[in-house]
Amino acid sequence: MVNHSKTELVIEAGRTEKQYWQDLWCYRELFYFLAWRDILVRYKQTAIGMTWALIRPFLTMIVFTVVFGKLAKLPSPVGVPYQILVFAALLPWQFFAAALGECSTSVVANSNLISKIYFPRLIVPASAVIVSFVDFLISGIILLGLMAWFNFVPSWRILALPLFILIAFAASMGAGLWFAALNVKYRDFRYAVPFITQFGLYISPVGFSSSLVPEKWRFIYSLNPMVGVIDGFRWAIIGGEAKLYWPGFLLSLGLVILLLGSGIWYFRKTERTFADVI
């Protein structure tokens, strides 16, 4: 029999830790397929398809430029078009907001899978974030377009962008895991999340530069982890004038790491009962 070498699977109360990360690796293809499914389905039966991923951030950018740049006449660093200032922040923010929304509903939306098939549940919210990430990459095209339009050449700092993307990823994943797990038990969070993302758009420095925040509040302002992410994006994309407020950035970074760590911990803690309460 071939099975001699097969490891024995033991099921006991509270004993799934050991195989979990190994399982996660075994099920990596499922992770890929779930993401693939969501991407495929996302724009099915729409007339303009993927273009939606371009239109939404583009229009938001125009509105923000008009309201904050032209009407409120908020300053932007010298030589940086307001459009690029806004879009450099809108990019990570929309990614965060979309990922958080997708992620928080992902487990409940896949309840038919959860209650019928075993797989490491972490795959579901993770692949939801990936879907938003694809949208993020698509809307990145707009940024390139804007740069070409305004003849804006980024500095070497653009090379650090992947690092900030990673932080944005961690932030949305961390928050998403919390909400996804909580949403299974308390459907209240389904209503809380849109509110949070709507609210967050204004308290995060999306439409304006965070240098507008008075110096003494800057550190406290950075308690919003997206402040660090957005500042990082601006720092990398705009270059030159945009300065990184280091204490605030490190605080944001620390919070993101804490958010992700605790998110995974809470998700892992509750996922075993998902099938029972969903």
Binding site: N3, K6, E8, L9, V10, I11, E12, A13, G14, T16, N112, L113, I114, S115, K116, I117, Y118, R272, T273, A275, D276
Partner: peptide, 26 residues
């Protein structure tokens, strides 16, 4: 099929398990 956890007891399984609790899951 490891969808939910037992409260008590122990199971040991040798070999790859596939469970079909419903046709067309997913």
């Amino acid at each position: 099929s490891r969808i939910t956890e037992p409260t008590k007891g122990r199971i040991s399984i040798k070999g790859r398990v596939a469970s079909l609790l419903e046709v067309g899951t997913g």
